[in-house]
């Protein structure tokens, strides 16, 4: 989880991802960030986030992203 927070803050240092709840709604993460984020996550956690998982619910908060990574890892 820490590694994930690390990646997120590298994109937007000014944001406190641990507590913030709606990254998409607030427009913090726009489509540019999402693509970069996916690349980082795929490299860091050796998972493959498929295109159909790229939906707002999965990227709403750091916890949601972490849940997605776990799900892909378990498969």
């Amino acid at each position: 989880m820490e590694k994930l927070l690390e990646i997120l803050s590298s994109l937007h240092p000014e944001v406190d991802f641990a507590s913030c709840g709606d990254l998409i709604e607030e427009g913090i993460l726009d489509s540019l960030d999402i693509v970069t984020l996916i690349t980082e996550i795929n490299n860091a956690f050796d998972v493959q986030i498929p295109a159909e998982e790229v939906i707002p619910e999965n990227f709403e908060s750091a916890a949601a992203i972490w849940a997605l990574i776990q799900k892909l890892d378990e498969e």
Partner: peptide, 19 residues
């Protein structure tokens, strides 16, 4: 968007290109 944009922007080739 579902069948061209996202698969393309999330594909390995694109990720390597992005890094």
């Amino acid at each position: 968007t579902d069948y061209v944009f996202y698969p393309l922007s999330v594909s390995n080739g694109m990720q390597k290109f992005s890094t």
